[in-house]
Amino acid sequence: MQRRHKEKLIELIFLFNGVLVVLVLAGIFLLLLKNALPAFKEVSVVHFLTKPIWNPDAYDQATYGLLPMLVSTLMVTLGSLVVAIPLGVGTAAYLSDVASPRVREIAKPVVEILAGIPSVVVGFLGIVLLGPVISKLTGSYNGLNALNGSILLAVMALPTIISLSEDALASVPRAYEEASLALGANRWETVLRVKIPAAASGILAACMLGMGRAIGETMTVLMATGNAAEFPRSFLGPVKTMTSTIAIELGEVAYYTTHFHMLFAVGLMLFIITFIINLCADMIFHRHTRGLA
């Protein structure tokens, strides 16, 4: 009798935890929605999605165009993926297929610890280390630009990409590898033509999770990308991403103004984008693990 009550109680505690997490998530979404909606009483959704200028403090007519910061965010994110994916998948292939077990046992935790470096520290390195280098190489003013942000975000996305890609490669059945080697393929051909394709969905999911991380990252891009409120022109020019805009402006904006509500609308967009990316990654990842079972 006593025991059954105890079981029941434990069950309830877990249920409560699970429900709480879902509620918090739903709550965040509703809060964003509630605060974002009033903005569209004054400014149309079309204006928000198509105007190429974000200028809430304009003297005559304030404009709230999402495009400049959306493009900035996409530039910095895609730029980071161009750097991080080849590097990350290459490192994962090295760890799973070339490195000795000893090296792998040391290197993998070290890579995972990289994920724990505070973003402000990475941003700091962007300003004092990477910025001057980029400035010297390209002749740009201070090296605080989209390129700088991309490289830093790549560094931050790498642990996720390496660690999950390595898991995906390691879970490729050994039988595939043996079959390939027995047909006279060398190790390199085996990794490139059999293992990576077999692990493709896991690697893709890893890259998408890395991308989710890069899109939502704030402090690093805020510090390293220059934050000019203009339409981004090139990787060597300053950009102001969605996250930086919210972080910079929400502290100074007057409450319950259109500008205030607009920042929530930007946050909502960000939430939706990362949600979709994570959902896709999750679906791909599950298809991957099911496919191997």
Binding site: A179, L183, G184, A185, R193, V194, P197, A198
Partner: peptide, 21 residues
């Protein structure tokens, strides 16, 4: 091998693989 271990590729690609590598 003991357990059939075709690659997760098409039938054609499986047989062509050894030639290609």
């Amino acid at each position: 091998f003991q357990k059939p271990n075709p690659f997760p590729k098409s039938i054609f690609e499986n047989v062509a693989y050894g030639l290609e590598v």
